[in-house]
């Protein structure tokens, strides 16, 4: 299809072409423009829960991952007002769980952390909840550290929609929402989880970790050491 035949909307003044059925964030990513996001993943049906991708569409705020692109929409994203709000949402995620980056194997490769760098989050701002969350080390090859869960449900979706399993699910409500696994014991080892599952490789933070490979990449060479997340709107696994 001829590129200039595609309809467009504007994102921070820049025309973004889109095809029918694309959401704003999908069209933006295809055009190489970064909109902060955590629960969105190009391979999965939009979820709309983290709200990091909130943009202004014709002046009204909405999640760009669930809003379908339409011709001539005026979309604002990279503006102070929205970035301030996104930073506050990140701060909420940081105080809600226990995110101790220095001891986390995912550090440097973590979307939550990289997004917080991108939005210049210098402090957690709010008072910490310091919740008591478990670590599940029962599986021989994988570790689950629930302290870092941001409830994006990507693992739930990956297990269900790609792996045809139901290894992960959300339980609880409100601030007590939490990730559970599909076993009477509550332990990963008693599920049908496998290291070849999509769900094993989808976690944007440091909850689902492969054992014995931690800290393999030296500091300085990790994914987000090289370039900020905004410079890599499509990650290697995304394309």
């Amino acid at each position: 299809m001829n590129q200039d035949k595609l309809e467009t909307f504007t994102l921070d003044g820049q025309p973004i072409p889109f095809s029918a059925g694309q959401t704003i964030i999908q069209a933006a990513m295809a055009a190489g423009v970064y909109i902060p996001h955590l629960c969105f993943h190009p391979e999965f049906k939009p979820h709309g829960s983290c709200k990091l991708c909130t943009v202004k569409v014709n002046g009204r705020q909405t999640a760009s991952c669930t809003y379908f692109a339409q011709a001539n929409l005026v979309v604002e994203s990279n503006i102070t007002e929205l970035n301030d709000e996104r930073r506050a949402l990140l701060q909420m995620l940081f105080v809600e769980g226990n995110h101790f980056c220095p001891s986390c194997e995912k550090s440097g490769d973590c979307q939550l952390q990289a997004t917080a760098y991108e939005l210049k989050m210098m402090s957690p701002h709010f008072d910490h909840f310091f919740p008591d969350r478990p670590v599940d080390a029962t599986h021989p090859d994988y570790l689950l550290d629930f302290n870092r869960c941001i409830l994006c449900s990507l693992c739930v979706r990956a297990s269900r929609d790609v792996d045809g399993k139901a290894v992960f699910a959300l339980s609880g409500r409100g601030i007590n929402s939490h990730l559970i696994v599909n076993a009477e014991s509550g332990n990963l080892v008693d599920t049908d989880f496998s290291s070849t599952d999509k769900a094993a490789h989808i976690c944007p933070v440091g909850v689902i970790l492969k054992k014995r490979v931690g800290f393999a990449v030296p500091i300085g060479q990790r994914r987000f050491d090289a370039q900020p997340i905004s410079a890599q709107p499509l990650s290697k696994e995304d394309v």
């Binding site: 940081f94 226990n98 995110h99 101790f100 980056c101 220095p102 001891s103 210098m122 402090s123 957690p124 910490h128 310091f130 919740p131 008591d132 969350r133």
Partner: peptide, 17 residues
């Protein structure tokens, strides 16, 4: 506030649970 411990409690705060 200089460093992780001042900013978010850091390693010592791992006892908080």
């Amino acid at each position: 506030a200089l460093g992780a411990c001042a900013v978010n409690g850091g390693l010592p705060a791992q006892r908080n649970h």
